[in-house]
């Protein structure tokens, strides 16, 4: 597998009238990885992805996908990528299996349509016309259409929006199988848990720019502090606890009998806290470590909630 990035965007700018949707965005996508483009609605996720797909011509900057210019080299690029639009894309009168079979016919070595239909649980609605499918079924059909041509790289624009938890899990599973078989995946999402579950790399974007990029672990670790919580007897002597803990650790009784310790929460810190509790005859109820999440990272970076 080559180490060349499969997507390379530099200084990408895209405006619609006087509104700037993408504002000097830099993005690199590794081959064989799942990359999540994460951001709130209106951050420029779809515009970024659609520029990579060749739908939009950048106003400034360059985009290369599989080493090709998505607009100028569209004919060479299109057979190699799979595209799942955020919505639509199917004749309202076409049946689910009919549309998927049709997409397969446009490719030289497509997947087995029957197996893919079963894999995505579309068997029960194969004869149903698109307009009568549920939102979740429409989403799964769009996903199937993106992968049926055996692409090297797939772009999935909010692949799990509107799915129930079970269908969401099943979509995640398919994305993992794609990666395992060497397909590069770019997906947009505004679900933190989706990015944390699936992505090897996350590009956090806000207001048309990438404001942070890295693995979920890197992003969550970067300068971040974790939290340990427990409840116990009110009025514990926290000063004596802090003496036993590393410098920089903080402890507070936030409400009566509810304690919060912030700092580098590692196994030693946890052991120190519990042994201090044992020495002081305290039973630390509901002791829990709160990992720093991408949600927190986003809040720190932008000062706003992701799903505002």
């Amino acid at each position: 597998m080559s180490s060349e990035p499969v997507v390379q965007a530099r200084g990408l700018v895209k405006r619609y009238g006087d509104k700037t949707a993408v504002d000097g965005l830099d993005l690199e996508v590794r081959a064989g990885a799942v990359t999540a483009v994460l951001g709130p609605n209106g951050a420029g996720k779809t515009t970024t992805v659609e520029t990579c797909e060749g739908y939009r011509r950048p106003d400034a900057g360059t985009v290369r996908v599989l080493g090709l210019d998505p607009v100028a080299d569209a004919a060479a690029l299109r057979p190699r990528i799979g595209v799942m639009l955020q919505s639509g894309g199917v004749y309202s009168g076409a049946r689910a299996v009919e549309m998927l079979t049709h997409m397969a016919k446009l490719h030289a070595h497509p997947l087995d349509v029957g197996a893919l239909v079963d894999r995505l649980g579309l068997g029960g609605c194969g004869r149903t016309t698109y307009r009568r499918l549920s939102g979740g079924q429409q989403q799964r059909l769009a996903l199937a259409m993106a992968v049926v041509g055996r692409p090297e790289l797939v772009f999935l624009d909010e692949p799990t929006a509107g799915l129930d938890p079970q269908a969401r899990r099943s979509t995640w599973e398919l994305i993992r199988e794609l990666r395992a078989d060497g397909v590069s995946v770019v997906l947009t999402t505004h679900f933190m848990d989706e990015a944390e579950e699936l992505a090897d790399d996350v590009a956090v974007i806000d207001a048309g720019r990438v404001i942070a990029q890295g693995s979920p672990e890197q992003l969550c670790r970067g300068g971040a502090e974790n939290t340990l919580r427990f409840t116990g007897r009110p009025g514990l002597d926290l000063a004596s606890l802090l003496k036993a803990l590393p410098d920089g650790t903080q402890a507070a009784e936030i409400t009566t009998g509810a304690y919060r310790i912030t700092g580098t929460v590692d196994p030693e810190l946890l052991a120190t806290v519990t042994s201090w509790c044992a020495q002081n005859g305290v039973m630390p109820d509901g002791i829990a470590v709160e990992r720093h999440t991408l949600e927190d990272v986003f809040l720190e970076l932008t000062g706003k909630e992701l799903r505002a």
Partner: peptide
């Protein structure tokens, strides 16, 4: 579907 099912093998069908 087994491992290797999705291994890329892109290409357009004949026009």
């Amino acid at each position: 579907m087994s491992a290797g099912t999705y291994t890329p093998r892109p290409g357009a069908a004949p026009l």
